[in-house]
Design a protein around this nucleic acid. Sequence first.
DNA 1: AGCGCGGGCGCG
DNA 2: AAAGCGCGCCCGCGCT
Length: 597
Amino acid sequence: MSLDGVRVHLVDDVETAYECKRWLSTLDRVAIDTESTGLSKDTDRARLVQLGDARQAYAIPIEHPGWSALVVELLTRFEGDYVAHNLVFDDAMLRNALGVGLPETRSHDTRLKAHVIESTGSLALKSLAKRHVDPRAAMFQDDLSDVMTKSGWTWATIPLDYEPYWSYGALDTILTYQLDDVLDPLVQREAPASYDLELAVAWVCERMERRGVLVDREYTRAFADELSEYMEQAEAWCHAQYGVYAGSNVKVIEALQAEGIEFTQYTEAGRLSLDKHVLGAIDHPLAQTVLGRRQAQKMVTTYLQNYLDMSERDGRIHPSINTVGGMGKSPFEPGGSSGVRTGRMSSSNPNIQNVPVRGKASTKIRRCFVADPGHSWVKADFSQIEMRAMAHMSNDERMIEAFRSEGDFFVNLGRDIFADPNFKKSDPRRQLIKNGGYAKIYGAGIPKFAATAGVPENEAYEFMQRFDAMYPAVPRWIRQVERDALARLNDEGEAYVRSPLTNRKHVADAGKLYTLVNYDLQGMAGEILKMKIVEADQAGLGEFMLFPVHDEQNYSVPNEQFDDVLVTIKDVMNDDKLLNVPITSSIDVGPGWAASE
DNA sequence: AGCGCGGGCGCG
DNA sequence: AAAGCGCGCCCGCGCT
């Protein structure tokens, strides 16, 4: 496969349009790509639509009414398969421009295929094409940024007939087509189930993005104003009393040192730390005011103000749900983002997955999000899903039994571990058990576990001894994961594990093989939620879906259908077939996301 | 003005 | 022998 002799055409006259139509009618598969006014699936739209096969491609400027009608006709008539690189993005751009999208059952995505084959590395088309298609693909860098800044063009205004613009766009479909030829056999060989799941969930998530979440803007504005006012007062006080800006940690530390306070905690990079634990432990009005202001600022800037800004257009936020990797940098660059690591999904603009749920203001923040009029909010979340994954993977008989028998899982563990049949849910050791379980899942050492649980290290050590003795298949499985990964590192040059559910691959960084235990469990939990979202969609729940949060799915359900829909949600979320322990979930219902009282 | 970094912090 | 995993976003600060 190579780029020798490829041809690209701009559809700017009737003859070329006719040629394009005839060419397409001979194909059973076509690559499709769009150039858009920008990157927002909410507000941007396609300007140029490109169609290509292995040898040639057509670019069609759809701002011309005749050519937009042509594309609608082509899309309606074509009966073969589509392949795109980042399918749901192009689908959204087409919908926004033409009101017509791509058919879910006949469309494929090389970005998802690449992700399934190699969950590390760039998912950018050019970089993949360079590796898999033709090393010269990199020479066709469609880097238009220079000419754009020079000419004052944006993605919305760059002339459609500017040759580098449309020809590089067209070339991308040729690359996509050839890339698909290479990747598809690999996907079918390695992990077809993983790809099918990713493709299915991508479609459902696109619909969730489109729908968005209703924001109570008046309430949000009032709360934001209240906190902002508090911030201003706090800043004025810090400045008047101590001459410092409350936002500057360096200055605040200096001021507190002048008051005789000693600092002993250091940050990663070796500077003095002024995080919330340090501040919280200082009995001084400046420290407490700085802490209060910092918390208020977090609530306003990270949450409330974003909800207001981002819901201005239609009263709703439309968080991006990144099912495999963000639109941004590679996850291995610092600050890079994506769900690439474990196959969990991530969210951005705004991140709907880090909305406060514990602190003082959490209920008030969550109250910003409400069900649609005449609807109720339903939150369905899995119970201890990663623990259940650990029981399943290790196949530990006694841990499986603790899940299968009645009552609270951690209480059941407590009865085992402390040989106390009367162990109650209120027993303070229950927290130690929870911390211990998650320490196993995360691969924590004794010191970290002890610190998290707030117990001396010897106690933490002794607990782990008891835990391992009671559930011996767990440490055995952990050792097995690391042995397998080491063997693969030696044989194949890559330390990885594969998920038993879809054969999805999880790769460890060099020298951090222990992380694979966590990737395996976190990845399995992520896959389970994806499977359940797809299942829920197939059961007719798609139109009610709002967004996922790692182990929960949120819905806005019309009140007149409420009972039926709730039964279906429970049917989907509770499952005793998928793993060797039952999967159970809890359901919360209310007018909005905030826990109803 | 924009960028990268460090620090900090919200969630599972 | 030793190891807490995964995300996204905001601020202050120094640099270009």
